[in-house]
Design a protein around this nucleic acid. Sequence first.
DNA 1: ACACTTTTCCAAAGCGCTTTGGATTTCTAG
DNA 2: CTAGAAATCCAAAGCGCTTTGGAAAAGTGT
Lengths: 372, 372
Amino acid sequence: MANCLHLAFGYVDICQIALNNMFVMVTAPINLKKLSEMLGLSQTTVSRALNGFPEVSEKTRKRVQEAANALNYRPSPSAASLATGKTRSIGHVIPVSEHRMINPHFSDFLAGASEIYAAAGYDMLLRMANAGEEEDIYRDFASRRRVDGVVVHGPKTIEPRIDLLKSIDLPFVVHGRSGADANSYSWLDVNNREAFRKGTELLIKQGHANIALINGLESMNFAKRRRAGFEAALEANKIAVDQRHICSADMTETYGHDATLAQLKLSSPPTAIMYASILPAMGGIRALNELGLQPGKDIAIITYDDELSFLQSPDGTDTPPFFTAISSSIQAAGKRVAEMLLQQIDNPMQNPINELWEAEIVHGKTTSSAGK
Amino acid sequence: MANCLHLAFGYVDICQIALNNMFVMVTAPINLKKLSEMLGLSQTTVSRALNGFPEVSEKTRKRVQEAANALNYRPSPSAASLATGKTRSIGHVIPVSEHRMINPHFSDFLAGASEIYAAAGYDMLLRMANAGEEEDIYRDFASRRRVDGVVVHGPKTIEPRIDLLKSIDLPFVVHGRSGADANSYSWLDVNNREAFRKGTELLIKQGHANIALINGLESMNFAKRRRAGFEAALEANKIAVDQRHICSADMTETYGHDATLAQLKLSSPPTAIMYASILPAMGGIRALNELGLQPGKDIAIITYDDELSFLQSPDGTDTPPFFTAISSSIQAAGKRVAEMLLQQIDNPMQNPINELWEAEIVHGKTTSSAGK
DNA sequence: ACACTTTTCCAAAGCGCTTTGGATTTCTAG
DNA sequence: CTAGAAATCCAAAGCGCTTTGGAAAAGTGT
């Protein structure tokens, strides 16, 4: 390897060992001290060269970087963290709902976020939290100085975590939002109210007057907003809201199935149903089939769609989507939230960022094409 | 708070501030030095008291612990890590397949693992890796000494990661297994071959002779074993294996749908189908419905089931399962793998642990009850 | 040649913990 | 009462990095 030639004298042997991929077994891991000794420079200079400080000439910087690469030197994160007070890692606390259910959309969100962290040299710390544990975990993160910031997932309608994080001064970004003073912190949310208003409006335009809403858990802020949008559309069209046609629970496939059956057994069954997620919507389809009803013909279906990766068509396939959906990419949301958080960590004095994304309607086979 | 009374003299004020939950805003975070000064003990003694060393009397240990609690003292992980060389964190590298798809079963696996780590005082580090990136990430973890061990997810039929981890001496446990010398490292796997043999056998007993297998990606070790079990059952019953009835891809809902349609359009359509995961199975059901076929009557369906939380019935609900499935809890697997890894980290000289779990057949509505 | 600025580099202090190698005190037995 | 053992505690070194406050070397204009 050409790099070896640039190294200081007398260390070619170690370098050669490194070339055989054997050096980990032979030598202790290389550290700043050794590296600087080999280069005949001080630790200060090597550290500065590697961290891009201006006080070191380009010539030496290059020499240092090549040596560091050749020897596979990586600064110890614990040591760096101890010295700087920064951990270069971000905490994600994923809520596990009462029935030990983990919403699968988190994995896609995390995939998006992870990409940003990796590019910025940050690590991602994950904790699953049972109901009520979240606050303790944030407190733990803070008092151990374990992370530089956290992402708040699944804000409830009343969300003590936000106040807690403000008070312990730990940078955070909320995926979703909660509370009246939502401009006092950074968040990224989908315009759930408008999304469900639009979707309901579409169904009404197609002639439906008896529409059910199979919603998520209404202790969650997003679910409450979705119901509000749903009801607003009905009211705007002078359709009375019938609470028997609204239900709310963890968004599982089974829930969608059972709730759909229940709806269709009512004395005045709905002619259209809105689902809060594609999973209950799939359960709904299963229920329809059991009853011999055909979605898009006998009954209209619209679902909110997070564009979960395991429910997508493979690339290149151009088959039209099955569900008519109100859609927004959760992976993209993960990316953006991560960016916002890193930005806020770099510049703590900046004003909070609020982003409200509009979901898009995608026409599929589960609604008639009228009014499209 | 009574604890305050046990503290050394002159610090009651700080203690009272702590009681108001205000101390974070007033004082710098407490560290060993301050804590030991307050107690009138050396740092050594306080550290030992907190870490359960025998050289300190129970009386002082108690005094120290109470003070630490009252002041919400947590040792800095970076400092501890620097001093001990241990990070008390575990890395998980989740593969993202070519089409940017993340298998949703990972979130349940991680939920299981996270519980174990939390109980043991470990943190979980997560990275999503595009195809081919995994090895670099492990190398990065190792050279930065970022984690004490890693879990290997989704081993391929040929798995360079295992050799890599052995050579860089980073403790690991594989979820699944790969390679000929599988007893040279720790793994936990489901007996996929036997599971699919059993499932296929059941279908054959029910009179099916033309069975399709809608498998996962066969570059993955588990998928290859499943096919082997499937073929073994056919051969044992003198049924020729027809490659046209076997297909393989990322386990998405859409894949299940499309592959099922394709199977049923063949000149000799199968009378039973085995699915590698509940997601493609759901897609399959959707396809059957489009064709007006009823699962369990017109065609038999068996699927492998990871018991994903978002596809489970809510607690207490006693509705019989929809799918006839070969089932094993992935959340339980996550727990056990985490336990095995921590055990191995604590005791590096112990022999590798290998656990092969048998999946259970659960009878649902998608097969006839004959042969049950 | 000089005095000045700019560039390039360094010694040493510290981040907060663990751990080694005693020192001191208390307990036990003769 | 005293020597030895046991229990209890401590000072200081060190983990690997960043960063402060210069010092030395190189460049610049007169």
